[in-house]
Design a protein around this nucleic acid. Structure first.
Lengths: 138, 138
DNA sequence: TATTGTTATACTCTATAACTATA
DNA sequence: TATAGTTATAGAGTATAACAATA
């Protein structure tokens, strides 16, 4: 019989926080008619243009998966495929103006969805949490 | 033009931590031939038996989705469907012995996968993080 | 030859709607 | 009538393998 260690509790808390956060993000994306992955794609492309392969690597997905994701988001008018002038094999993906608008509203929706998860923490504790998470992620 | 507020940074950190955590959990589940949802099902059933509908509600899924998830996990021998003696319409889902074994090894794998995410924090800070997360989740 | 991306295929996850059996 | 669960159907996300075009 094992006792519950500090590490177990940390892992448990990390997992639960992640599921709760992802749940909120999934709902918010669904409200916009998007999947969590499409949400990530829009967020990533807000400040850069990436090739299909780089996008796939960034998300930890196969290139063939990326082809489909980009096709569906393109069909919705959220992003566009542009030829890479330096490499005729490559395709660069960029947000359209509509994509930027959706990304902006999604950012606001994320705030509205995630901030309530922290209501049990007073402002000072929220700040401590933010500092710890940033340090962990750095 | 907006400035980045404390709230924005907190939301950003929460989101990034969640994606990184879920990424690790997804990989770990995939190594065991399972999806993230199947991982959750096993974790939930470790200490209880639930009806299809209750499982679905717990996970935020439709009952029809649950039917398929349970069918596939049953086919793998990880869980079993049992008739509810008090209600002939209902089905209770329980882990098999094999399911318990997989759940145990998954718990260990979660520790091994998530703890490294916190390496940038010294022990005292990890503890602070755990306390803050538990309070947030309570 | 190696790389970039697509296509074909198959499976899982998910929801909606219609249905069966039981309460 | 209402509830528990299943089935049928459809679409998205995902991977693997084979492929075409370009480097």
């Amino acid at each position: 019989m094992q006792e519950t260690t500090e590490d177990d509790r940390l892992v448990d808390a990390l997992g639960h926080a992640a599921f709760r956060t992802m749940g909120a993000l999934t709902d918010l994306a669904a409200d916009a008619g998007l999947s969590l992955t499409q949400l990530r794609v829009l967020a990533i492309l807000r400040d850069r243009r990436l090739r299909i392969g780089d996008l796939a690597e960034y998300l930890g997905l196969e290139k063939s998966t990326m082809t489909g994701l980009v096709a569906r988001a393109s069909a919705k008018g959220l992003l566009a495929r542009e030829p890479d002038p330096d490499d005729a094999r490559a395709v660069e993906v960029v947000l359209t103006e509509a994509g930027h608008e959706v990304a902006r509203s999604l950012e606001a929706a994320m705030r509205d969805a995630l901030l309530p998860l922290t209501v049990r923490l007073p402002a000072a504790k929220r700040r401590e949490l933010r500092v710890l998470l940033e340090r962990m992620l750095r």
